[in-house]
Design a protein around this nucleic acid. Structure first.
Length: 747
DNA sequence: AATCGTAGTGTTTTT
DNA sequence: CACTACGATT
């Protein structure tokens, strides 16, 4: 059969072992996704398994989509009905169907980290806890951890001598109670509640066990305790479970991932067959050898070594920079001089290049340099669309409409835009609601019937309630995008932003615009999008999911984000003690090993060429600090490395930065010439291109419809987000979003 | 109630 | 250095 011809012996074995439990150790670049997809295809095509009985779980939507696409490619329409999903969306779907058994409404909302924190803070405030003594963040992470361990509040037994734990128990209890009152769940609850459901209601569990006859788990090394429990529940009985993972790529221990799950799998599932995929199809020999050398130093790992038939390839390049700016210059120099103008690699493009770093803060220096040289880039992760204030506000309106019990969203928008309903009014209503045992919104409506509210407040609250009632009514007939537009208009949210008129406000308007676009697009694609479905989707997207590599740009991301991706050319910057093994309080051997794995993940993303760099001095907090070379550099075999010489610094006289005062004077002088008028009209037909780069340069003279003439002092960002600081003759310096500024280039 | 200014504080990684 | 949380101000 042709399917099997595309596979090497180990891969083939992993596909053919369909019954019982199978553990696949899949080294980086060893064709893991190929095995999973072929296995699914094999089950359906050769074993006659119904697609409906196959369940595959991944960690990101991107991985899930990719898998679905590839299976569809193999099978065509007979792939229909396979359940391929992330842990979180699978759980959300299960809860959508059965959460009423746990005392929640099926229209529950999902709270993200930000909502979670707000909620936690109100809970802590009500318990009269001092934030300085008990950090909300610490509480939050402990609660998350408890949930990852499958621990409900009533099961948690704090040590009687530990004040923090005693308070934690209290907070956790109340936190959960109030979440329920809001008919909301947080991320951790999604998983926790499904295991609870399975444990308490055998009929529910049974129906899913029956459905999921063949279960596959991707990135198994990243599962935490509760996810593992979930899988075990699901495969009880038939035990057809295939888990794929690589202990060397476990980088989420801090988030509760248990490498133990993969290492103990054989113990928990007696009779497990084990397949190890060691042939790498991705990287050159040199890169692979380097990776093997580094990860070999870890003690807590299953012994294995990747090999490849690929060519030797180039040596790894190491550059020791003066500081982070010099490091950024090195990266950019390599990109423009070596990589893109190398005739041997004539098809190299920006999209083939990625830059990895340990922490997001490192991106800044790189971005600045990339912008300076007009190299297009995207940042994967970082500022997330659905976490922006304005987007979250609009979503909060929608959430409240979908689920009127959602007090967290209600509090968020009650005064957004400002309607004169202040904190103390809301506090009174909160107390009142709690006394009556009502959700906040209900309490608000009840309060209107009584007369303890000041008439002014009552008036305004009445107005708000009426507004929401109208929206709820309209939600029944309008499409999602129409509803959103109505909402934007009638709350005056957009109007207020536009009035504000600052560039920040304008960029918010643009983001909201974008949101409406997303909605409209969604409506055109699928037959019907319900409010709940949409909100759920939004709650569960991740940055990597939104990452589209279609455009020709250099990719910047953290090492964590890089997992699962590959690029012909990879830079790993900041190879320094303290940064790449990142120092934190309480260093443990396990932590160091995780850092090493992180480094390993980074190295193994590279297909053809790997550049490493470190800076002798790096400013953190604005203070320079000398860093020692990363110990991981020492772990690389010397023969594989080649040093990059430092370039002699050119005179900084030619730097693009000019003082704005100079611009001011310059432009001031020139504008005194009367002949300008004609010069302007000649150039009037210059249109700034709507996509790609806006052809602005520092030093250019431009005209703005309101502010008049000015000179470009500096430019930041790219494309639609590009901002420029322009020194106007009459208005002085202003920072504008180029896309909206409607600039005319004079010269 | 809303806005403005300041002091203190903190940077890992995120489903 | 950059952000935010809080306090003082109108």
């Amino acid at each position: 059969m042709s399917l099997l011809n595309d596979l090497n012996p180990a891969q083939r074995k992993a596909v053919l072992e369909t019954e019982g439990s199978l553990l696949v150790f899949a080294g980086a670049g060893s064709g893991k996704t190929r095995v999973l997809t072929y296995r699914i295809a094999y089950l359906i095509q050769e074993k006659g398994v119904s697609p409906r009985n196959i369940f595959a779980v991944t960690f990101t939507n991107k991985a899930a989509n990719e898998m679905r696409e590839r299976v569809e490619h193999l099978l065509g329409s007979s792939a229909r009905g396979i359940w391929i999903s992330t842990f979180h969306s699978a759980c959300a779907r299960i809860l959508r169907g059965h959460i009423d058994r746990l005392g929640f409404g099926k229209n529950f909302v999902i709270y993200d980290e930000d909502d979670q924190e707000r909620h936690l803070k109100t809970v802590m405030k009500e318990l009269d806890l001092d934030f300085k003594m008990f950090h909300p963040r610490a509480m939050q992470s402990r609660i998350d951890r408890l949930k990852n361990e499958g621990m409900m509040p009533e099961q948690y037994k704090p040590s009687p001598f530990n004040i923090f734990e005693k308070r934690l128990a209290l907070v956790y209890q109340k936190y959960q109670e109030d979440l329920r009152r809001n008919n909301g769940v947080d991320f951790g609850d999604l998983l926790l509640f499904v295991t609870l459901l399975f444990r308490k209601f055998p009929d529910v569990l049974g129906s899913y066990q029956n459905l999921c006859r063949y279960v596959m788990v991707d990135e198994f090394q990243d599962t935490n305790l509760i996810q593992y429990q979930l899988i075990r529940h699901l495969v009880e009985g038939h035990r057809n479970v295939c888990v794929v993972g690589d202990d060397d790529q476990s980088i989420y221990r801090w988030r509760g991932a248990e490498v133990g799950n993969i290492l103990n799998f054989e113990r928990d599932f007696p009779g497990t067959k084990v397949v190890t995929l060691e042939q790498n199809y991705r990287s050159t020999q040199h890169i692979l050898e380097a990776a093997n050398h580094v990860v070999k130093k870890n003690r807590f790992r299953k012994e294995k070594a990747l090999w490849t038939e690929n060519p030797e390839g180039e040596l790894l390049t190491l550059y020791v920079a003066e500081d982070e700016e010099d490091e950024a210059r090195f990266v950019v120099r390599k990109i423009s001089n070596d990589i893109l103008s190398n005739p041997e690699e004539s098809n190299r493009a920006y999209r083939h290049i990625a830059i990895f770093y340990r922490i997001n803060a490192q991106s800044r220096a790189l971005e600045e340099e990339l912008v300076k040289h007009q190299i297009p880039y995207t940042i994967v992760g970082g500022l997330k669309f659905y976490e922006r204030k304005e987007i979250k506000d609009i979503l909060a309106y929608l959430k409240l409409i979908a689920n009127p019990s959602d007090g967290i969203s209600l509090k968020r928008i009650i005064n957004q835009p400002p309607r004169g309903i202040g904190e103390k009014t809301m506090e009174r209503i909160a107390v009142f609601s709690k006394e009556k045992g009502l959700p906040l919104y209900e309490g608000m409506r009840e309060a209107l019937k009584e007369d303890w509210l000041p008439s002014g407040s009552k008036e305004r609250i009445g107005g708000f309630v009426r507004l929401i009632e109208e929206f709820s009514e309209e939600a029944k007939t309008l499409s999602l995008s129409q509803l959103t537009l109505t909402l934007l208009a009638r709350t005056g949210y957009l109007e207020r932003l536009k009035e504000e008129g600052t560039d920040e406000a304008l960029s918010r308007v643009e983001n909201i615009d974008e949101l409406v676009n997303v909605l409209t697009e969604l409506e055109q694609g699928e037959d019907q999008v319900s409010l709940e479905t949409f909100l759920e989707k939004v709650s569960l997207v991740t940055d990597v999911d939104l990452y589209v590599d279609k455009e020709n740009r250099v990719s910047l991301m953290t090492l964590h984000c890089a997992k699962g991706l590959e690029f012909p050319v990879v830079f790993i910057v900041g190879m320094e003690e303290g940064l790449l093994p990142h120092y934190r309080k309480g260093e443990e051997a396990e932590d160091l090993e995780e850092e090493r794995r992180l480094c390993y993940v980074g190295i193994t993303r590279a297909k053809k060429k790997l550049y490493l760099s470190r800076a002798e001095e790096r400013s953190t907090f604005g203070v320079g600090r000398a860093n020692l070379p990363s110990r991981f550099l020492d772990e690389l075999p010397y023969e594989l490395m080649q040093m990059e010489e430092r370039e002699r610094r050119r005179d900084s006289l030619f730097s693009q930065e000019t003082h704005w005062l100079d611009d001011f004077n310059q432009s001031g002088n020139e504008m005194d010439f009367p002949m300008q008028e004609s010069r302007f009209s000649e150039k009037q037909d210059i249109v700034i291109s709507p996509d790609g780069f806006y052809p602005l340069r520092t030093g250019m003279r431009v005209r703005h419809p309101q502010f008049g003439d000015g000179r470009v002092k500096s430019i930041e960002g790219m494309n639609e987000n590009q901002k420029a600081t322009i020194v106007f003759r009459t208005e002085g310096p202003k920072r504008l979003k180029v896309r909206y500024a409607n600039l005319e280039i004079l010269e």
